[in-house]
Design a protein around this nucleic acid. Structure first.
Lengths: 225, 225
DNA sequence: GGATCAAACTATGTATACATTAATACTGAT
DNA sequence: ATCAGTATTAATGTATACATAGTTTGATCC
């Protein structure tokens, strides 16, 4: 490291990271408006990189740039959640099937196996945050094994859009004990090269998870998150 | 209309439209590099809106902004085409199934029926450009009927990325006479409310179209478009 | 003549000043 | 007092000037 700060990342890239962090942490609440100049001051840079970051995040569906009204952090409705979970269900199931067709060795499936093990550990310790992180890792690794980079990107975008809603419901619902059986079954189907089984098991898993989440939101009158 | 030009659209929006047009028309060829300042002169505006447009289109996967090297129009490889067609196959088939579940009336399905009629007319006249436009209309309307706005966006992005490649192969391959039977079958399944049939027929249709296209590209050694 | 280092150049990244326009407040008449 | 019309304001949209860093060029030494 040189004595002075090297400044490897551009301010624009920093603004993207920071804005994402502020959105996911709730520091910029869903539905709130923020002037570009305010955000610029907050991030310690000029409007230019902040505006570029805002336009990028608008493309990712996290906020909306509105003329003379600042950027609005987009809230997620129940209908949005249904849309997103339908896309996730479809593309993840496809990834599971494609992964099964690739004939991965046990070595290649270690990260997926590791994520399941982490979920089991977290469940035993009733550590919801650790479970959630491991669950994310499982789904991310699953689509990675599917081998389609566009699917990886799209699933990432959709997952980001429901991130806040998932965080809210994480402590509302019972511990997902069934979930891990499903994950193991998917892993076994992939290891066995059974594309149809991998697809169908994961599809049913996702559909069930969607129903649980939607019902939870409806019952608690959480129509916007 | 007022006497002077009203200027309803922002320069940034115009830049997006123009750049898309220049990319799809081949005026900015795949793989070519272009300085932001050159593009600004070409579009008759400053670098700012051009740069904003470039960043937006980078998010849509049409080009890449590279530090000190200008924007590169991204070429599409055969592997890219496979990725994109796999996503399209999955999401369009899902849309067909969802559309079938919605119980649309004949009135609601008129646009889809109209697109098929246009394809038949174009086929009879051997007008490939008209057929291509009607085929686009069919697929766009199909996902619209699916009722998932995110699927509409994603399918639009994927379709844009393969647009050049489709244009190249349009005059290379035989007239797609089988295609229309498939389209009619999908329409009938949706009208009959048979989600499984709508899904499976469209899935097979897309898979076949993908194989034709990929083989055509391989045979003609078109590895980058 | 070739290699090394430095200086100039070039194009993006960033800051800032300005233009534009929708919203708001104010003024004045009825 | 209310409404219409105008002026001010405020924030984005845009242009431009500047900073930064990578590349190329050129000069100098061996």
């Amino acid at each position: 490291m040189s004595p002075v700060t090297p400044k490897s990342k551009s301010n624009s890239a920093i603004a993207v990271e920071e804005l994402r962090r502020l959105i996911f942490s709730g520091a910029l609440p869903a539905g709130s408006d923020h002037l570009e100049s305010e955000l610029a001051v907050r991030l310690g840079m000029s409007r230019t990189p902040v505006r570029e970051a805002a336009l990028l995040l608008e493309g990712q569906g996290l906020l909306k740039v509105r003329a003379r009204k600042g950027v609005r952090i987009l809230p997620i409705s129940i209908d949005d959640m249904i849309e997103i979970y339908d896309v996730l269900t479809e593309l993840e199931s496809m990834s599971a099937a494609k992964a099964a067709e690739k004939g991965y060795k046990a070595q290649d499936l270690k990260p997926l196996d590791g994520a399941i093990a982490d979920m089991e550990t977290a469940l035993a310790a009733e550590d919801r945050d650790a479970w959630s992180a491991a669950d994310d890792a499982f789904h991310t690794e699953l689509v990675r094994l599917g081998g389609n980079s566009r699917v990886v990107s799209i699933v990432g975008l959709m997952a980001d859009q429901v991130r806040r809603a998932k965080a809210v419901t994480l402590y509302m619902r019972p511990l997902p004990t069934q979930s891990n059986k499903d994950h193991r079954s998917v892993l076994e189907a992939i290891a066995a090269g059974d594309a149809q089984a991998a697809h169908d098991i994961h599809y049913a898993h996702r559909a069930a998870a969607k129903d649980v989440l939607i019902n939870l939101l409806r019952q608690n009158r959480l129509h916007m998150l």
